[in-house]
Design a binder for these strands. Structure first.
Lengths: 196, 196
DNA sequence: ACCTGAACACCGTTCAAGT
DNA sequence: ACCTGAACACCGTTCAAGT
């Protein structure tokens, strides 16, 4: 029984929520249809987002923040040892990537776009701070070869990213089988990275 | 000095070439604009492609055929030994993926779409026949652990796919540095896969 | 401050009609 | 067989105007 003036009130939040839902359902996002569904004129979103891209960027930024929280939570729940923490990171990343496929694509597309906002870039960096630190830790613990941490992390991350994109494009099934493949990949990488 | 009737003649081929060029330039593909550029009415493409998706699928199919040729050529040029051939495959795949980023995305999107044509699916399978055979060969030669070849190839392919997507999203630079990272990744994978 | 309604320049797709 | 031109139902974006 909230009272309603002719203005909507929390339109910004509803636009974001609606857009993400459409995205998750695999549909193309039309601002006009979004406005229609929320019950507002097609020009109303303009007050909150300069254009469609601005709305997508806001969605992407929020996505990076959630991804960061997911990764940190998974790593923390895995205990203190490097290898289990790496495994948890891998699983959490692939889980996010498959559960929010369209959003993840949006996140990276937005991050890289020439005119991308700084807030988006820093949100992306923050999401990967803890995993990068974990790789450095694994090097310090002698579980992974020494050297440029970022370069080593890149190959591992690429593998996860690739597995996720293969699931999302149907080459690989999700679920329990995927979990095994991720575990395979992480162990394979850790083994390959172990100092010899 | 080719004579021209009011009909264009080889419109189908010109549509495909024009579409790929637009795609390569990173522009959004509009059928109307494409028709305009070729100098034909906006409804003319309809004679050759049922809808926009059909044109994209044709492009994707051609892409898989070219990718297959690239992969086979690179592997053949690398000699007889498994590891150099795996390395050549990796480099050729990443090269294609970075040189034809938008096309590759189209290829996989098309391949997975529920209503995808069989010709598209088989073209995709054919492109990866030789690399899959190479993995089986590497297993036979004792360079890679025995077991489900496809499952092992998946991790390797995921890594390449991931590296390519990171280059395409700007996280990783192309060029000589990329070649090193690919070599790193392949060796790391081969090492991780080597029977112990 | 926040939203509306009309307008503009685009889309993809359809279909009768032309040659 | 191959293409045209008008039409339809959509877009995203802009802007004067309303409350």
């Amino acid at each position: 029984m909230a009272t309603r003036t002719y203005h909507h009130g929390n339109l910004r939040a509803e636009l974001l929520a609606g857009a993400e839902q459409t995205l998750a359902e695999g549909g193309d996002l039309s601002l006009r249809e979004l406005a229609r569904r929320i019950g507002v004129s097609h020009a109303a979103p303009r007050r909150h987002f300069a254009d469609k891209q601005a709305l997508l960027d806001a969605l992407a930024e929020d996505g990076f923040e959630r991804l960061g929280r997911d990764l940190r939570a998974a790593m923390d729940a895995a205990g203190e040892q490097c290898v289990p923490r790496l495994l948890a990171f891998g699983r959490a990343y692939v889980a996010f990537a498959t559960r929010h496929a369209a959003l993840l694509e949006l996140m990276f597309a937005g991050k890289h776009r020439p005119g991308a906002a700084d807030s988006l870039r820093t949100a992306a960096d923050r999401a990967f701070e803890a995993p990068l630190a974990l790789f450095a830790e694994a090097q310090a613990a002698g579980e992974v070869v020494p050297g440029d941490t970022e370069r080593i992390a890149i190959v591992a991350w690429a593998t996860l990213q690739g597995l996720a994109s293969m699931v999302n494009s149907g080459m690989l099934e999700g679920g329990a089988a995927l979990d095994d493949v991720v575990a395979d990949a992480v162990h394979q990488l850790v083994l390959g990275l172990r100092p010899r």
